[in-house]
Amino acid sequence: MSATRLLVLGVVRMHGSAHGYQVRRELLTWSADKWANVAPGSIYHALKKMETEKLLEVASTDGHPGGPDRTAYRLTHDGETEFQHLLAKYLAESDDSAQGAYRLAAAVTFLPALPRDKALSLLRHRLTQLGGQRASATDLLEHGTDWGQPEHVTELYRLWLASIEAQERWLRELVARLGSGHYVMADDDEVAFGTPG
């Protein structure tokens, strides 16, 4: 699944109801086209698809003179469940693909939608997975050319290891910040970012 799905659900959730142009404008002001690979056309496609999947429902349709009708959507109960599921999954599961990086970026965007302890638990789970990936990358560096690969391939293993170590460092620091009370989260007294409108 793509980062776009989580981002669209999150923006609609945050606004209470939103039409495609609002979602597109919001995501583009966040530069999500760059850090989450969100194409403007994919936003409208995601809205329609999630309506057919009963994750979104029509909240209103406004007609505009000289322009197309604008359909505003809101999350259904199943849409809220899907939002929470994707948010948890993308925070907890370490995936070193490009899509995995986009999904993590989307999840971090809506991190405050979670209770603090749940967010910490998911991020610690991700850290555990990264530890396993670091062990694999280290093993490949130590024995990589033993299986007949060209020697320069070890540079790919070094790149992978450096990426894992950078993610681990960032995650440990994020866990420490969250644990010490940084950021307003869903279970805090203040209104957290992404709280339904």
Rank of each mutant, 00 (worst) to 15 (best):
G197L: 12
Y90L: 04
S31P: 01
L130W: 10
S31H: 15
P68C: 12
E155Q: 11
L130P: 09
S97W: 03
M1H: 08
A137Y: 09
L47D: 07
E51D: 05
R103G: 05
Q167V: 00
L171M: 14
L174H: 06
H125C: 03
D95M: 07
V191S: 11
L174N: 07
L161I: 09
L161G: 13
H143T: 14
V23N: 00
S136L: 14
N37T: 02
E155C: 00
P115E: 14
H15F: 12
A59E: 14
L171K: 04
T52D: 04
V38N: 06
H143E: 11
G16Y: 06
L120S: 10
V191E: 15
T145A: 02
D62A: 09
V38P: 08
G197P: 09
E80K: 10
H182M: 03
Y44C: 04
G148S: 03
M1C: 05
T128K: 07
L178P: 11
L114Q: 11
H182D: 15
G79D: 01
E93W: 11
G100T: 02
L161R: 15
A106F: 13
E190I: 00
A162K: 14
L75A: 02
D33F: 03
G132C: 02
K54D: 13
H182F: 06
K54L: 10
A166P: 01
H15Q: 12
A88Q: 14
T154N: 12
D188H: 07
A88R: 14
W147H: 13
M50H: 10
T195S: 11
